[in-house]
Design a protein around this nucleic acid. Structure first.
Lengths: 200, 200
DNA sequence: GTCATCATGTAAGCCGTTACATGATTGC
DNA sequence: GCAATCATGTAACGGCTTACATGATGAC
């Protein structure tokens, strides 16, 4: 789904400007391998987001040295000259494109964070980037998710005419649901405890 | 992935002939909502499987009554006549297409059941239809899966510079892995206990 | 100056979803 | 006979994967 990728990209960009390659790396660093993607989907996604005005391309910065930056005062002036020369001279040269989130992008991110509490993968991303919500919103998000999972649990599914392995799958599913519900309860508890204006 | 749908369709057909609509229903009855799909992907998938010779279209059967089948011995003869009449008369009429698995389909199913132990969704389907394997093969499948999960667990991922919610996600992921490993150990234990020629 | 890595893209093919269209069966 | 459901398909669209192409940077 494009939703997941959009959510992740926008979420990452709230922590600072990034270029595509770096976005991909951070994506793969998310806990539990929540979202793995490839350049073939990442770059088009960035392009779509740019087209919708949710991200904007920042001024391409000077190439930042990876190790041991020898930054004396006199050198920084040279770097600035180098950068501006680069910026003009690099036509037809492929340079880093640094993306930043826009105000519309922040709105969209908030919308994505609060929507659609049903999809499992999406919800993990919502948790990963929920610091962009207020404590109250987080609480509401977690509670809606809990209710959604509780509903799933209620449905009896198929217990009749199931062999050993199907019963094993059903058992695993139930355990996973219970575990997730407990996890959500802990998140909710944390949110209530740390909320602004928390009851004494 | 087409693999999942193929696996599920072939697996379901080992329990008897089915038409597409019924395949979809059974699919949604699988424990834990392992695979939900739509007609728009199901029918093309059936067509592909037929094109590859993995399933074949069986003689369209007579419309089977949904409730209270009055099957006396004398009626079965009438049903056969009715069916053959239907088969000819229904040109241009859209009738049930009943699919059956072929020998090649069984081979493909076995291959799919034993392959690719990395994908989470696929593995659940492999468990659901693993009765089509021998006990030894099941054991090997489960052990390979356990090793794969154990490898995932080893990778430290990102624990540095993680906020509360990222740590919560990481914790949830770790718990899920541990739970799955325990579940697999139970499956493995069951397989060893019930294997043909199990050691005393 | 060369190789590995960083970095950005494009193109082909596949597959899935959604919406639409059509027809048959059954219950009332 | 009418509505709901059963049943099969097609078409449009979008997005993901894989593979390919290209160029810049840094280490040695």
């Amino acid at each position: 789904m494009a939703v997941n990728l959009d959510l992740a990209i926008l979420g990452l960009l709230t922590n600072g400007e990034l270029h595509g390659y770096e976005v991909k790396r951070r994506l793969h660093e998310l806990p539990g391998g929540v979202l793995r993607t490839s350049f073939g989907s990442l770059y088009p996604a960035l392009g779509r987001l740019e087209g919708r005005g949710l991200v904007k391309v920042a001024e391409p910065a000077a190439p930042q040295p990876r190790t041991s930056v020898p930054l004396s005062g006199s050198l920084s002036g040279e770097a600035a000259i180098f950068r501006s020369r680069r910026a003009k001279a690099s036509r037809s040269g492929r340079r880093k494109k640094v993306y930043a989130i826009s105000d519309d992008g922040r709105d969209e991110l908030r919308s994505l964070l609060l929507d659609n509490v049903e999809d499992d993968r999406t919800f993990l991303l919502q948790v990963a980037f929920c610091p962009n919500l207020t404590s109250d919103e987080r609480l509401e998000l977690f509670e809606r998710r809990r209710d959604a999972l509780a509903t799933r649990r209620a449905d009896p599914a198929s217990s009749a005419d199931a062999d050993f392995y199907q019963r094993a799958l059903l058992e695993r599913y139930g355990d996973g649901l219970a575990s997730d519900l407990a996890w959500l309860d802990r998140l909710i508890e944390h949110e209530r405890t740390h909320a602004r204006g928390a009851p004494s």
